[in-house]
Design a protein around this nucleic acid. Structure first.
Length: 563
RNA sequence: CGGGGAGUGGCGCAGUCUGGUAGCGCACCCGGCUGGGGGCCGGGCGGUCGCAGGUUCAAAUCCUGUCUCCCCGACCA
C-alpha cells in the first residue's frame, strides 16, 4: 500500500477527552474515529489490524472443528422472552413498521439454539461446534476508553452442543486449547483466570485477561495461580488480636461508627474488628454477612454463598432488626450470621457492634457468643498467600471468555435429541466469546511507548514500513519505488511512505503507526549502498541491508527474526 | 442513575466573568526555497460559536430549556 493512496489521518495532538492509551494512540495513529458515544469506525489501517486478529481466530476455530456461519443481529423479541433475557437492561429494543417487537442481539445463544433445536434430532448429530463473527449491540450504561467498552462491537462467539457433561468438558477443553493459541499468536500477555459463573448458573467459566492499565477488571496473580478478583481465594494475613477477655465486654464508643474511627479510639488494628454487612436476599431472607474490619465483602462470592441475588439492607431494615447503623453486630441478633472464613478459621476474640447506640463489644468469640455459618465471602488483597506465595493484583481487560452453559438455553428453547435408547434429552451447551477489538486495544496498551504503538508482528497493520526520502524524480525516490515493487512482488506486507513530506514527518508517523520493521531509503543509502533497518520495538537499529539482488530476501530474513 | 467537566473552522485551544467587526497554533490550498527527525518565506480557503426560545439597539458572551460528548462512581454474560 502506498501512503499517498491510504486514508490514514494521523494527529499530532491527542483528542482532548481521551484517557486510555489505546484510545489516544488509536485516534492519533489514524486507526479509529468516533461516531458517537461507544460507536467507533475502524479506518483502513485499524481495520487491517482487526482483520488480522479475526483471521487468526478463524484459523484456530476451524482447527478444532468448529464451523463458521452467520446469524442476524436483528432478532424477534419472542425468542428472548423464552429465555428470560428480554429483561436485561442492556438489550436494545426496536419495532418494525408493523409494530413487531425486535431486539438487537447482545450475543447469539437464542438464535443458534433455535436453529439447532430444529435441525438436531439424534445423538448421531452431536457433538457440534458453530461460530460466527458478528456485531453485538449492547445499550451500555457507560461506554468508555475508546474501543475498550463500546455499544456495538464485533465478537467471535462459538457454541458447543454435546450429548452430555463429558462431551461438554471435551468441547470446553478444545476451546481452551484454541484460545490459548489465539492469544499467543496475537502477541498478547494474557492469563486464563477462573471467573464468576454469574446469575445464569452453569458449571464453570474462565476469562482470558490481558493486563493493561486501562483494564476494567482486576486479576489476582501468583506463581501458578490466576483468578478474577471476583472469585479469587487466598489465605489472609492473620488478624492482629488483643489479649483475650474470656467473655464479651461492652465498651463506650460514642460517635464512632466506622471501622477506622473505632479502631483508632480503641487503639486496635482494624483486623481486630468485625464489619457487619446486612443484606436482603431476593427471597426476602435477611442475613448478616460479616468480614474482618480490614477486609471487604465480595459481592460475587456472597451471592454464590447465598445461592441467590441480594441487595444491601436499608437503614430502616437494619434499625428494625438489629440496632442503630454503625453499631450493629452478631451478638443477640435474630438474623442468621454468615461469617467469612478468614474469621471463622482463626481462633480468637473480636470487637463487634453492640446493637446499641454508642457501644461496641470486645472479647467476642464466634461460636461461643453467637452462632454462625461460614463461607468465603471476602475479596482477596495484595499480599494474601496462595500456595505460600503472595498474590499481586493487576488491572486487566477481558479479551475472551469461555462458559459451560449446560442446559440453560437448550431447555427453554426445546433443543433436545433422542439418545441411543430413544429418550428425549436436552443438549448440553457451552459458549465462548472473543472481542477482536479488545485484542487490538490490549496489544496497543501492552506495547506502546512515548513515540506511539509497537505492534506484535502478527497483527500489525503492515509488517514493514518502507520510508522513501527525497522528492519524486530523484534517484533515491526511484530506488525506493523500485524496492517497494520488488517487496510487493515477493509478497511482503509493506506500507510505502512515498509522500512529498519531510523526513521528520515520515519518521514520526511511522513510529506512531508502529509497523514492526522500518526500512529507510534515501540519498545516504544510495551512497553507502545499504538500506537502513530499524525495529519498532525499542527503536533499535538492525544491521543494514545491502542494496542489490539479495535485498528482498534479506528483508524477509530480518522480518523472520522479529517476534 | 449519582457526582464533575466540555461543546467556538479538520485537530488543539483563547475569547464568555465585564454584551459592541470571531481570534491563535497546527492542518489544508497556491507559489517559491529546503530535503535524514514535524524546516523557511509570501499569499489564500474555511466557523449562522451544539440546538431552540427569551432579554437587548446589539448575544459566542446574559436568562430559560434542550441535545450531545468526556471523566469518576454505580452498573456490566
Amino acid at each position: 500500500m502506498k501512503m499517498t493512496q491510504l486514508l490514514l489521518p494521523t494527529e499530532r495532538e491527542a483528542p482532548a477527552d481521551a484517557q486510555a492509551l489505546s484510545h489516544v494512540l488509536g485516534v492519533r495513529a489514524g486507526l479509529i474515529r468516533q461516531l458517537g458515544a461507544g460507536l467507533w469506525t475502524w479506518l483502513p489501517a485499524g481495520w487491517r489490524v482487526h482483520s488480522k486478529v479475526t483471521t487468526i481466530i478463524r484459523e484456530e476455530m476451524d482447527a478444532i472443528g468448529a464451523q463458521e456461519l452467520l446469524m442476524p443481529i436483528i432478532q424477534p423479541r419472542e425468542l428472548w422472552q423464552k429465555t428470560g433475557r428480554d429483561k436485561i437492561d442492556e438489550l436494545f429494543s426496536l419495532q418494525d413498521r408493523k409494530g413487531a417487537e425486535l431486539v438487537l442481539a447482545m450475543t447469539h445463544e437464542e438464535a443458534v439454539t433455535f436453529h439447532v433445536s430444529q435441525i438436531v434430532r439424534s445423538y448421531r448429530d452431536l457433538p457440534l461446534m458453530l461460530y460466527h463473527l458478528q456485531l453485538k449491540a449492547r445499550d451500555e450504561p457507560r461506554p468508555r476508553a475508546g474501543v475498550l467498552r463500546t455499544r456495538e462491537f464485533i465478537m467471535k462467539d462459538s457454541y458447543s452442543f454435546d450429548r452430555d457433561q463429558d462431551g461438554l468438558e471435551h468441547s470446553y477443553q478444545l476451546h481452551i486449547e484454541a484460545y490459548d493459541r489465539i492469544f499467543d499468536r496475537s502477541g498478547l500477555e494474557w492469563y486464563r483466570v477462573e471467573s464468576d459463573v454469574g446469575v445464569m448458573g452453569g458449571s464453570g467459566a474462565h476469562e482470558y485477561m490481558a493486563p493493561c492499565p486501562a483494564g476494567e477488571n482486576e486479576v489476582a496473580l501468583a506463581p501458578g495461580y490466576a483468578a478474577n478478583v471476583e472469585v479469587a481465594s487466598a489465605e489472609p494475613a492473620p488478624a492482629k488480636l488483643p489479649p483475650r477477655l474470656g467473655e464479651p465486654r461492652e465498651l463506650p464508643t460514642p460517635g464512632k461508627q466506622t471501622i477506622e474511627d473505632v479502631s483508632v479510639a480503641l487503639e486496635l488494628d482494624p483486623s481486630a474488628l468485625l464489619k457487619a454487612f446486612p443484606v436482603v436476599a431476593a427471597s426476602g431472607k435477611m442475613v448478616l454477612a460479616m468480614v474482618r474490619g480490614d477486609h471487604r465483602v465480595n459481592e460475587f462470592k456472597l451471592r454464590a454463598a447465598l445461592g441467590e441475588p441480594f441487595r444491601p439492607a436499608t437503614e430502616e431494615e437494619i434499625t428494625d432488626s438489629l440496632g442503630p447503623v454503625g453499631y450493629i453486630g452478631p451478638v443477640g441478633a435474630e438474623l442468621p450470621v454468615l461469617l467469612d472464613t478468614a474469621v471463622a478459621d482463626q481462633d480468637g476474640e473480636w470487637v463487634v457492634g453492640a446493637n446499641r447506640p454508642g457501644a461496641h463489644l470486645a472479647g467476642v468469640a464466634p461460636g461461643r457468643d453467637f452462632a454462625f455459618e461460614s463461607a468465603d465471602i471476602r475479596s482477596v488483597e495484595a499480599g494474601d498467600l496462595v500456595g505460600g506465595q503472595p498474590i499481586r493484583l493487576e488491572a486487566a481487560i477481558e479479551v475472551g471468555n469461555i462458559f459451560k452453559l449446560g442446559t440453560r438455553y437448550s431447555e427453554p428453547l426445546g433443543a433436545t435429541y433422542l439418545d441411543e435408547e430413544g429418550k428425549e434429552t436436552p443438549i448440553v451447551m457451552g459458549s465462548y466469546g472473543i472481542g477482536p477489538a479488545r485484542i487490538a486495544a490490549a496489544a496497543i496498551e501492552q506495547n506502546a511507548d512515548e513515540k506511539g504503538i509497537s505492534w506484535p508482528k502478527s497483527i500489525a497493520p503492515w509488517q514493514v514500513e518502507l520510508i522513501g526520502l527525497g522528492k519524486s524524480g530523484t534517484p533515491e525516490a526511484d530506488a525506493a519505488e523500485a524496492l517497494y515493487a520488488e517487496l510487493q512482488a515477493a509478497g511482503v506486507d509493506v506500507l510505502f511512505d512515498e509522500r512529498d513530506a519531510g523526513p521528520g514527518e515520515k519518521f514520526t508517523d511511522a513510529e506512531l503507526l508502529g509497523c514492526p520493521l522500518r526500512l529507510t531509503l534515501g540519498k545516504r543509502s544510495l551512497e553507502s549502498g545499504a538500506l537502513e533497518v530499524q525495529q519498532r520495538s525499542g527503536l533499535s537499529e538492525l544491521p543494514a541491508i545491502a542494496l542489490g539482488d539479495q535485498t528482498v530476501a534479506a528483508v524477509i530474513a530480518a522480518l523472520a527474526e522479529l517476534k
